[in-house]
Simulated assay, not measured.
Amino acid sequence: MELTKKQGTVLVKYIRKTLEEYFKEKTVDIKDYISEDMRDVVSREAAAYVTLFKYPSMRFRGSSGHMLPILSLEKTIREATLKAAFRDRRFIPLMKSELRDTIVELSQLRKPVKIEADSLSEYPSKIKIGRDGIAIEKGYTRALLLPQTAVMMGWNAKQFLSFALLKAGLDPRYKSKNIQVYRVQAQVFREEKPGGDVIEEEFN
């Protein structure tokens, strides 16, 4: 189910509120924060990621989420928010003083589509930068790079695939056995500035 712009805006603001209240040692019940007509939306299972950026540099500050719809959207967002801010091992935990200079972004993922290819060299031609993210799966190992990542980093499709493979701990020079590569598209909602208006990113 696609989110409306209004729903995406409410959820991004909920993410920020969750972080603000965390520093006050409080929690936010999403059902007290959203309108009655959104309760079904947040109760359904959904795949989503929360990503944080430093403002105004837009330097990556943390990200977490679920590639598959295994939890309700409500639980996925809350869990991803706290993990992105405080338990992303690539960064020290977010400090209260940083929040005023941090951009919040929500990506609701659409169903992954498996890419069929006989060799690694075939995959890039089947990936459209600005529209597709890349998910890698091998056994119990999964890695995801969101669609907006390639745009922000200035990567072409070949570079995008290489970094996705590296994130999964795989050698980008070889097609490992039993590797699965998926296209993943997303609805993306992001603050224009910390605590400011929320925009929906357009990916075509």
Rank of each mutant, 00 (worst) to 15 (best):
T4I: 07
K5E: 15
K5L: 15
K5M: 13
Q7P: 01
T9C: 08
I15E: 12
I15D: 12
K17T: 13
E20P: 05
E21Y: 13
F23S: 10
F23E: 10
F23K: 10
E25G: 09
K26F: 05
V28R: 09
V28G: 10
I34C: 10
S35V: 06
D37C: 07
D37S: 15
V42E: 08
V42K: 05
A47W: 01
M58W: 13
F60H: 15
S64Q: 03
H66D: 06
E74G: 00
T76I: 04
A80D: 00
L82D: 03
A84N: 05
R87Q: 12
D88M: 09
R89H: 12
F91C: 04
L99A: 01
R100S: 12
T102I: 14
Q108G: 00
Q108N: 06
K111Q: 12
P112S: 06
I115L: 14
I115Y: 04
E116L: 11
E116F: 05
I127T: 00
G133T: 03
I136F: 03
G139H: 08
T141D: 02
T141W: 00
R142T: 13
L145Q: 06
L145V: 09
Q148A: 03
A150W: 08
A150E: 10
V151L: 14
K158V: 02
L161R: 05
S162D: 15
S162C: 09
S162L: 05
F163V: 13
A164Y: 07
A168N: 06
Y174P: 00
K175W: 11
S176Q: 13
K177E: 15
I179H: 03
A186I: 08
F189N: 01
R190L: 10
E192C: 11
P194H: 03
G195T: 04
D197N: 13
D197G: 04
I199Y: 13
E202S: 13
E202L: 13
F203L: 15
